[in-house]
Design a binder for these strands. Structure first.
Lengths: 236, 236
DNA sequence: CTATTTTTTACTGTATACAAGTTGTATTTT
DNA sequence: AAAATACAACTTGTATACAGTAAAAAATAG
């Protein structure tokens, strides 16, 4: 009896958010109002209100007289992202170190615990969502209404970029995730120590890690195959 | 015959935005759905969609089963604002200098012309809106989807803060506005010259001007009136 | 057979009616 | 008289039916 009337709207919102963050709904995908309202037992009116809200948060794009779409990721996305992210996240972590409440620090530790658990036993989607939650909490800590809109927009595409460039069974990827987890621990320590300089530096480090990792996939080393040779039988 | 059906929704959106930016609708004010839908010839359904959208942009706060409210300005607003604004606007102007198209530069010049006109002949509301438009254009120039959400949120409260601390017939205020106008000219020049360093510096200067001006009003010089003296007959 | 126009179809946008919830007031109880 | 409860008026949330619009299909002209 979990579909408790008023929560169906929240359920829909959460479902769409998770689906978009994990790329189960691809950038540019069309959303069918009739189908979704049917699936969630909602009429189109509240459904469209959810669309409007998610559009405001950057999950969806709305065009008049056309179906709602999952917000696009263009070829300029990565550049724009890595231009803005270090600055915004540096500020967020600096403010988080200054303003975090004990309760929020507990939240962050819980989020990190779940992230580590997802690293061990979870799916790629679980990892992306747990990582997203960790950073969401740092955003809450910063408590600055003027930075959060951009930060939350960044988090959406951070998750999607991570899912896009995720390669299972890759040694570098596993090491990368371990390093990210260590950085999370360092971030928690810096915030708990109210060390704003360290927190800000860690933000930079954290994005550099992401960026370098992605650069490896965007610009891979060329395959060392003689011309005319048969194609490789599935690169691990 | 301007109420051309589909534009009533846009009219409502624009009306609410302008009313909020100019403080005709005060922070925290309740919005009556029935009254507004009546006034704009819209039913409550599209009206509520506009509310949702404006809430996403930071103009309104929505609470379930309660009326929509104009987003609040608390006592921490100014501090949060001046923490975030220089950084974000510095980045916006830097990117604007790098990316502005000739057409956008023309838009900016038009906006500045209208701002100067508002300085000469317009009301305080006209000035705030013209100034807001100028900065909106610089935001468009930056063309970075990750910075714009925060920047646009800043612009909303920039206009409201300006209206709050506006004092007519004040010499300092007049000088301040002239200086702001000169800075706008310099910003246009820096963007046109693709001088990102200058543009970024001008962003800092522009906010320092605002901040100093506001500091004067928040912490005024004490009135030099002997105890027991009659109250001043209206300070000019 | 192609191109253009018309008709159909499906989906988005809006209005209205109704259900659920909140708030203020009046009545009852202590 | 003060507090608590019940009721009434009003506001918000949802469902459904209908209108408007854009894409798709069919039909006609070249």
């Amino acid at each position: 009896m979990k579909e408790d009337g008023k929560s169906r709207k929240a359920d829909l919102r959460e479902h769409l958010k998770v689906s978009i963050l994990t790329l189960r709904l691809c950038p540019g995908a069309d959303l069918d109002e009739a189908h979704l309202s049917d699936a969630f037992g909602l009429s189109r009116t509240p459904l469209r209100e959810v669309f409007r809200q998610l559009a405001g948060e950057g999950y969806l794009d709305l065009r008049t007289n056309r179906s709602a779409r999952v917000s696009e990721m263009s070829y300029t996305t990565l550049r724009d992202f890595f231009l803005a992210a270090p600055m915004v996240y540096g500020a967020i972590l600096r403010l988080a170190a200054l303003n975090a409440t004990p309760r929020q620090i507990d939240d962050l530790k819980v989020a990190q615990q779940k992230f580590k658990e997802a690293l061990r036993t979870g799916s790629p989607e679980d990892r992306a969502l747990a990582n997203n939650r960790f950073h969401e909490v740092t955003g809450e800590m910063s408590a600055n209404v003027y930075l959060l809109p951009s930060f939350n927009r960044l988090l959406i595409d951070h998750a999607r970029i991570g899912m896009t460039f995720y390669r299972p069974q890759s040694v570098e990827m596993t090491e990368n995730l371990s390093e990210a987890s260590r950085q999370h621990d360092a971030i928690i320590a810096a915030i708990e120590a109210r060390d704003e300089a360290a927190a800000s530096q860690l933000a930079t480090d954290h994005w550099n890690l992401s960026r370098d990792q992605i650069a490896l996939f965007v610009m891979p080393e060329a395959l060392n195959v003689p011309m005319g040779a048969p194609p490789l039988s599935k690169p691990a």
